[in-house]
Amino acid sequence: MQRLAPFAALALLAGPAGADCITRAESFLMCTVKGGAKELRGCWGPGDAGYQFGPEGGAPELVISVPLAQLDFIPWAGVGSSIWEEVNFANADLQYSIWHRVDRAPEGDPPSAGVTVTRGDETLAELTCDPGTISANFEGLYQAKAAIGQCWRDFLWQTCKSP
């Protein structure tokens, strides 16, 4: 499902922040949407993580940045027929949930990804990445969180205990 008009209006609500995915050392998700007209990027770098959305190859319309230690990242639980991961960015009363799914069965569905925009319990927009444009590295994001001393335990990122 793609409801695009509300998403375009929402993108203008967020002003520039500190993250710059174009120069980030690592991206956890990059793809185009709307037939290549727009691009979404999720990335991390020294100390922070970011989300950008805008015209492919152009200046982003939306930029959100948060400290890596505070990033709401839900890694794959290690069970099920598909690998599913999600990163959530808050901007005022809006949440941008960037997700990625890979079917583990060779004959399964092709990889998919996208962003869902919500306000409270209301879904305002859902954009799915154009087929064949998805580049994902959520494992790298997991390693980046571990590198700053965080462990995924009991469905929460926590400070790792020293041995």
Score class of each variant (00 low, 15 high):
Ala9Asp: 13
Ala9Cys: 04
Leu10Tyr: 02
Ala11His: 03
Leu12Gly: 15
Ala14Lys: 04
Pro16Phe: 01
Asp20Gln: 14
Cys21Met: 05
Ile22Ser: 15
Ile22His: 15
Thr23Trp: 00
Thr23Leu: 05
Arg24Phe: 09
Arg24Trp: 07
Ala25Thr: 14
Glu26Lys: 14
Ser27His: 15
Ser27Pro: 11
Phe28Arg: 14
Leu29Ile: 13
Leu29Pro: 10
Leu29Cys: 12
Leu29Gln: 12
Met30His: 13
Met30Tyr: 08
Thr32Tyr: 07
Val33Asp: 09
Val33Lys: 05
Lys34Asp: 15
Ala37Asn: 14
Lys38Ser: 14
Lys38Glu: 14
Glu39Thr: 14
Leu40His: 11
Arg41Gly: 05
Gly42Met: 04
Cys43Glu: 10
Cys43Ala: 10
Trp44Ile: 07
Trp44Gln: 09
Gly45Pro: 09
Gly47Val: 11
Gly47Asn: 13
Ala49Gly: 11
Gly50Arg: 07
Gly50Cys: 03
Gly50Val: 05
Tyr51Asp: 07
Gln52Met: 05
Gln52Ala: 09
Gly54Asp: 04
Pro55Asp: 12
Glu56Ala: 10
Glu56Asp: 10
Gly57Gln: 08
Gly58Glu: 14
Gly58Lys: 11
Ala59Ile: 10
Glu61Ser: 13
Leu62His: 07
Leu62Arg: 09
Ile64Lys: 05
Ile64Asn: 08
Val66Gly: 04
Val66Ile: 08
Val66Gln: 09
Pro67Asn: 04
Ala69Lys: 12
Leu71Met: 05
Ile74Ser: 12
Ile74Val: 12
Pro75Trp: 00
Ala77Gln: 12
Ala77Arg: 13
Ala77Phe: 00
Ala77Leu: 06
Gly78Trp: 01
Gly78Ser: 11
Gly78Cys: 07
Gly78Met: 07
Ile83Pro: 03
Trp84Phe: 08
Trp84Pro: 01
Glu85Gly: 08
Glu85Asn: 11
Glu85Trp: 00
Glu86His: 05
Val87Thr: 15
Val87Phe: 00
Val87Arg: 08
Asn88Lys: 12
Ala90His: 09
Asp93Phe: 01
Leu94Lys: 10
Gln95Gly: 11
Tyr96Ala: 12
Ser97Trp: 00
Ser97Arg: 14
His100Gly: 01
Arg101Thr: 09
Arg101Pro: 03
Arg101Leu: 05
Asp103Lys: 11
Arg104Tyr: 01
Ala105Lys: 15
Asp109Ser: 09
Pro110Gly: 09
Pro110Gln: 07
Pro111Val: 03
Val117Lys: 01
Arg119Cys: 01
Asp121Thr: 15
Glu122Pro: 07
Leu124Asn: 04
Glu126Phe: 00
Leu127Met: 13
Thr128Asp: 12
Cys129Glu: 06
Cys129Ser: 08
